Simulated assay, not measured.
Amino acid sequence: MAINIRCQKCKTDCKLGSKKCSSCGSPFPKNKKYRVIVRANGKRIIRTVNNLELARDIEGKLQGDIVRGEFDIEKPKSAITLQEVWEKYLPWVKVNKKTWLNDQYHYNHHLKPVFADNPLDTISPFDIEKFMVTMKKGKSKRGKPYAAATIKHQVVLLTRLYSVAEQWGLYSGDNPCKKVKKPKLNNQVTEFLTDDELNSLLDVLEKWHNKMSAGFILFCLHTGLRRGELFKLTWENVDLTRQSMVLKDPKGKLDQTLPLSDKAVEVLNSLPKDYKTQWIFYGKDGKQRTDFKGPWDRIKVAAGLPKDFRLHGLRHHFASALVSAGVDLYTVQKLLCHKDAAMTQRYAHLADKTLRDAVNLSDSLLEKKEVAQVVNMEAFKNAK
Rank of each mutant, 00 (worst) to 15 (best):
I5S: 03
C7K: 06
Q8G: 01
T12V: 13
G17W: 03
C21G: 01
S26A: 14
F28R: 07
V36F: 08
V36Y: 12
V38T: 13
V38A: 11
I45V: 11
V49F: 00
V49Y: 12
R56Y: 12
E59K: 11
K61T: 13
G64K: 05
G64I: 13
R68C: 12
F71T: 05
P76T: 06
V85L: 00
W92R: 08
K94M: 13
N96Y: 10
K97C: 11
K98Y: 06
H109G: 04
F115Q: 08
A116Y: 00
N118V: 09
I123T: 04
P125V: 05
I128Q: 12
E129T: 09
K130G: 03
M132S: 03
K139A: 03
K141P: 13
R142Q: 15
G143A: 05
K144I: 06
P145Y: 13
H153V: 03
Q154G: 07
V155K: 06
V156C: 02
L157P: 09
R160V: 00
L170V: 05
Y171F: 12
P176C: 09
P176V: 08
P176L: 07
K178R: 14
K179Y: 12
P183I: 13
P183L: 09
L185T: 04
F192C: 01
T194H: 12
S200M: 04
L201Q: 04
D203K: 15
K207P: 00
G215E: 12
F216T: 09
F216W: 02
F216R: 03
I217A: 02
I217Y: 05
I217D: 04
L225C: 04
R227G: 07
E229Y: 10
L230C: 09
F231D: 01
W235E: 05
N237S: 10
L240M: 14
Q243I: 01
S244I: 02
S244N: 11
M245W: 07
M245C: 14
K248D: 13
D249T: 12
S261N: 06
S261P: 07
A264T: 02
N269M: 09
K273V: 05
D274T: 06
W279N: 00
G286Y: 05
Q288N: 07
T290A: 01
W296S: 02
H312M: 03
T331V: 03
Q333F: 10
C337Q: 07
C337N: 13
H338Q: 08
K339R: 04
M343W: 05
T344A: 03
Q345E: 15
R346P: 01
Y347P: 06
L350E: 06
T354P: 08
T354D: 14
D357V: 04
L361F: 00
S364A: 14
L365G: 10
E370I: 05
V371I: 15
A372L: 11
M377Y: 10
E378W: 10
F380P: 00
N382I: 08
K384D: 10
